[in-house]
Design a binder for these strands. Structure first.
Lengths: 247, 247
DNA sequence: CGAATCATTGATCACAGTCAACTCTAGTGG
DNA sequence: CCACTAGAGTTGACTGTGATCAATGATTCG
C-alpha cells in the first residue's frame, strides 16, 4: 500500500551481522549478500506491509502472475484445487519465505495462498525484480538459489515413506525453519489444524492424532492441541530419516 | 497444447528448430527466445556431447556443483540415497530437459543422475551461465522459468492420492513430455524397469503390474513389458485427474 | 542351452483409512 | 455466570487396500 523507507526485511544499519535483520540471517532471504545501495534499490520496488486477516488469500490459482510475495508475519498455506474441487495443501510458509515462485513458469499463480492467522506480506513486482537482478549479480544468484531451495524442499517431502516418518519429518523441518528465523525450535504453536496437516501429508486426521500420541509416549514430543514441544530433537530427527542439507 | 504458443514462445518467428539445435523446440529449452548472436554466446560455453553408457552417472549426490547438464539423448533417473542406503527415485529426465537445478541452492548435487540406456548430455558451467544471463534478459527469464517449471512438476507428483491415479498421471505426463519433444505421445518405450517406476511412485512393483493389467482391461492402454501404447488418451487423462498447465 | 534378470500372478496379512461416538475448548448470549 | 452451541480434536471398532511373500513365466545374454 505505501512505500515507506525500510522495506522488505532490511533496515540498512542492522545488517551488519547477518545481512538481513528482518528475517534474521539464513539463505532464504532475498536481500542476503547485498550492499547498502543495492538494498535501497531493492527496497524501491517493494510494496511493504499488506495486512491479511485469517483465511484471506494473497493470490488465487489461475490469476495472472505479476508479483512475488515475501512473508513478513503469520503463517500461510499453499493449496491447489483439483477438477473435483478437492483441496490439496502443497505446503506451509513462514515469515521470511517467498511465495509465488511456481507461478513464474506460466505467468499464472498455480495455488491459493491463504493466511492461517492474521498476517502481513510485502509484494515484489517480478518484472522490476528481474530488471534489477540483471545489474546485481548476487541478487540474481540469490533468487536462483531460492527457487532451487524450493525444489529441494518438495523433494524432501516426497522422500518419506511411512506415516510416522512423514509426520516426524514435517515437525522436524518446521522446527528447523522456525529456528533459522530466530524463533524457538522446540516450542512451536502450530498455526494449522490437524485437518490441514493430514491433508498435506496425505493422511487421515485421526492418524495424526494417534501418531502424536505415540510420539508423546515415546518421549519425542509433548503436544496439547496446537501447542507442540519437542522434547527429544535427536530422536525426532532420527525418526524423520532423510533430511537433506544435513551432515 | 501447442496451438497456443502464447506464453513462453515470446517473439516466435520460425525459431523452434533454428534456435535450439541441441534439444529441439519446446518451452523447456534454455536458448528459447534468443537471437542468433546470443545463441552463439551460449553455445560458446556449452560443452556438448558427453556420451554415457547405461548405468553411468552424470553426477553424484554430494559432489560440488559447478555445471548444469542438458540431456541430448537417452533417459535418465534422478535418485537420492538416504541414511539407510535406500534409493528413492525423484524423477526421470528426457532429452531436452535440464538436470542439476536443485543443486544451485547449496552448490552441491543433491541426487545421483544415472543414464538408463546409452545417452548423451551437454554441460553448462553455471558461473558462466549466470554471467551471460546478466546481459541477456530473455535468457535469465528462461532459466528462471525452467526452475519454476521444475517446482510445478514436483508439485504435480504430490497431488495424486490413489495408486491408480498416481500411475495414470505418471504415464500421462510422460506421454505429454514425449509429445512436446516431437516423439509419439501414444507409443512409448518405457526406459525404466517396473521396479524403478514402483520406487518413484511409492508402490510395490507387483501393484504396478496389476494396475497396468486393469488399465489394459479398461481399454486405456496396451502394454507388453516395456512397450506401452496409449489407446484412450482422454480416459487416461481423466483418470490421472489433476494435471496442471492444461486447459 | 542354462543363468540371470525382469515381469506377472496368486494368497495372505497388516497398516492406515473410514465410520461413529465422545471430549474438550472457545465463543455467544440470556 | 452458567447453559448452550459449534468446531476441533481424540478415541475405539471395523474394514479394505495395497504391501509382502512365494512361485511361475518371459526375455535376454554369455
Amino acid at each position: 500500500m505505501k512505500s515507506d523507507a525500510s522495506i522488505v526485511h532490511i533496515t540498512a544499519d542492522s545488517r551488519s551481522k547477518a545481512n538481513c535483520s528482518q528475517c534474521s540471517l539464513n539463505s532464504l532471504c532475498l536481500p542476503l549478500g547485498l550492499n547498502q545501495s543495492e538494498i535501497e534499490k531493492l527496497d524501491g520496488l517493494v510494496n511493504s506491509d499488506i495486512k491479511l486477516k485469517p483465511n484471506e488469500t494473497v493470490f488465487e490459482q489461475g490469476q495472472k502472475f505479476t508479483k512475488l510475495f515475501a512473508i513478513r508475519s503469520g503463517v500461510f498455506k499453499s493449496a491447489q484445487i483439483d477438477s473435483e474441487g478437492n483441496e490439496k495443501i502443497l505446503g506451509f510458509y513462514l515469515p521470511g519465505e517467498l511465495v509465488g515462485l511456481d507461478a513464474i513458469h506460466e505467468e499464472t499463480y498455480k495455488t491459493n495462498v491463504t493466511a492461517l492467522d492474521t498476517a502481513s506480506v510485502c509484494s515484489i513486482p517480478f518484472d522490476n525484480l528481474t530488471n534489477l537482478t540483471a545489474s546485481i549479480p548476487s541478487l540474481q544468484l540469490q533468487l536462483l538459489r531460492m527457487l532451487s531451495k524450493e525444489i529441494n524442499d518438495v523433494h524432501t517431502q516426497i522422500l518419506n515413506f511411512g506415516i510416522e516418518q512423514r509426520l516426524a519429518a514435517f515437525i522436524y523441518t518446521l522446527s528447523l525453519r522456525y529456528q533459522e528465523r530466530g524463533y524457538s525450535g522446540t516450542h512451536i504453536n502450530l498455526a494449522m489444524p490437524r485437518l490441514d496437516i493430514a491433508n498435506h501429508l496425505n493422511m487421515a486426521p485421526e492418524t495424526i492424532s494417534r501418531l502424536f500420541k505415540r510420539m508423546q509416549a515415546d518421549g519425542l514430543i509433548n503436544i496439547n492441541r496446537r501447542e507442540l514441544i519437542i522434547t527429544d530433537m535427536q530422536k525426532l530427527k532420527d525418526l524423520a530419516g532423510c533430511i537433506p542439507g544435513q551432515e
